[in-house]
Design a protein around this nucleic acid. Structure first.
Length: 289
DNA sequence: CGTGGCCCCTGATTGC
DNA sequence: TGCAATCAGGGGCCAC
C-alpha cells in the first residue's frame, strides 16, 4: 500500500491494535521480508522476542514501531504490495504471509506482514535517541513529508529551483519530499495544471506553493476516506479497502473525460510506469527534457 | 556530484 | 486455449 495516505491508515490501525503489546514470538517465513538486517530473519525474531511495541510513527511511506525503553525500532516499508494485518490467531495463513508476530496477551490476534512481490519488508534499527521523533538511522535521508508540521516549505522551493530535473521526478524524490508516489503525484499535478515534464528550475515560488497545497489537499482527502484501493491488495490492518479511487481525477482515467475541461485523459509511459494527465489543462513544456 | 536507468518479485490482464 | 508481453501504488544501487 504504497503512498502516504495508505501508510498512514495502516499506522493508525497499528496504533489502535498493536501499540503496547509485548511480543511473544516472531516467525519469519520468507528471507527477503527481513531486509538489510545483518543477522537475517533468525536474529530479527530473536531480538524482538519479549519487547513491547510503542506508538507507531511514520515518515513518508516508512513506518516504524519504537520498542519501549530502548533506542530501537521495528522499521517497515510496504513496497508495492505489502500489507500489515491484525488477524485472529486462528485465521488461515495468507498465500503470501512473510512474517508473523505473536503476542502472549490473550487478545486472540496476531500481526502479519503479507507481501506478494516482496519489495517491502521489516527490519530492526537503532534510533537516534529515545522519543517520538527518533528516526531509525537508515531512513535519515528521507525528507519530511507534506503532512509533517515541520516540513520546510522554503527549503523545498529552493531545492526545486536548484535541481535540473522535471516536476514529477522531484515529487517522487523522497529526499526532497516524502510520501508522494505515482498516484498522488499525478493527482496533484492535475490539480495544479502542471505537466509532469515541466522543469522545476522554472517554478516560481507561488507556483511551487500552490503545487504543495494540492499535494496536501489530495492526501488529506484520501486519508479522510481510508486511502486509495483499486483491489484487495491495498487495505488497512483489518483488511478493509479505502474509497479514494472513485475521487481520482487523473490516475487510471485514460480516455475518460477530464473533469475540468472534458478532454480525454492521456496515459504516457514514464520511467517504467505511467503518467496520466489532461492534454488541455496540463500543457507540456516547449522543450521536453 | 547529480541524474537517470535498471533491477528486485508475483500475479492479473491483454493481445496474438 | 495457450503463451508472451505488458503492467502494477517503490526504492536501492550503480553507471554515466
Amino acid at each position: 500500500m504504497p503512498e502516504l495516505p495508505e501508510v498512514e491508515v495502516v499506522r493508525r490501525g497499528l496504533e489502535r491494535w498493536v501499540a503496547g503489546r509485548t511480543v511473544e514470538s516472531v516467525e519469519v517465513l520468507h528471507p527477503r521480508a527481513v531486509r538489510r538486517h545483518p543477522g537475517g530473519g533468525a536474529d530479527f525474531a530473536a531480538r524482538l522476542r519479549g519487547e513491547t511495541l510503542g506508538v507507531p510513527q511514520r515518515r513518508g511511506k516508512y513506518l516504524w514501531l519504537p520498542l519501549a525503553g530502548r533506542d530501537l525500532a521495528v522499521l517497515g516499508h510496504l513496497g508495492m504490495s505489502g500489507q500489515l494485518l491484525v488477524q485472529p490467531e486462528d485465521a488461515p495463513d495468507e498465500k503470501h504471509l512473510r512474517i508473523r508476530v505473536r503476542f502472549g496477551d490473550g487478545a486472540g490476534t496476531e500481526l502479519r506482514f503479507v507481501d506478494q512481490r516482496t519489495f517491502g519488508g521489516l527490519s530492526l534499527h537503532e534510533t537516534a535517541a529515545d522519543g517520538a521523533d527518533a528516526l531509525p538511522d537508515v531512513i535519515a535521508h528521507i525528507a519530511r513529508d507534506p503532512l509533517d508540521p515541520l516540513f520546510d516549505e522554503a527549503a523545498y522551493h529552493l531545492a526545486l529551483r536548484a535541481k535540473r530535473t522535471t516536476v514529477k521526478r522531484a515529487l517522487l524524490d523522497q529526499s526532497l519530499i516524502s510520501g508522494v508516489g505515482n498516484i498522488y503525484a499525478d493527482e496533484a499535478l492535475w490539480r495544479a495544471k502542471l505537466h509532469y515534464e515541466r522543469p522545476t528550475a522554472h517554478l516560481t515560488r507561488p507556483r511551487s506553493a500552490e503545487l504543495l497545497g494540492h499535494v496536501r489537499d489530495v492526501m488529506n482527502a484520501a486519508l479522510a476516506v481510508g486511502g486509495t484501493s483499486f483491489d484487495s491488495l491495498y487495505v488497512n490492518v483489518n483488511g478493509e479497502s479505502g474509497y479514494f479511487d472513485r475521487s481520482l481525477d487523473a490516475y487510471g482515467r485514460e480516455d475518460e473525460p477530464c473533469r475540468r475541461c472534458g478532454a480525454p485523459i492521456r496515459r504516457r509511459p514514464w520511467m517504467n510506469r505511467s503518467s496520466y494527465f489532461c492534454p488541455r489543462c496540463q500543457r507540456p513544456p516547449r522543450v521536453p527534457s
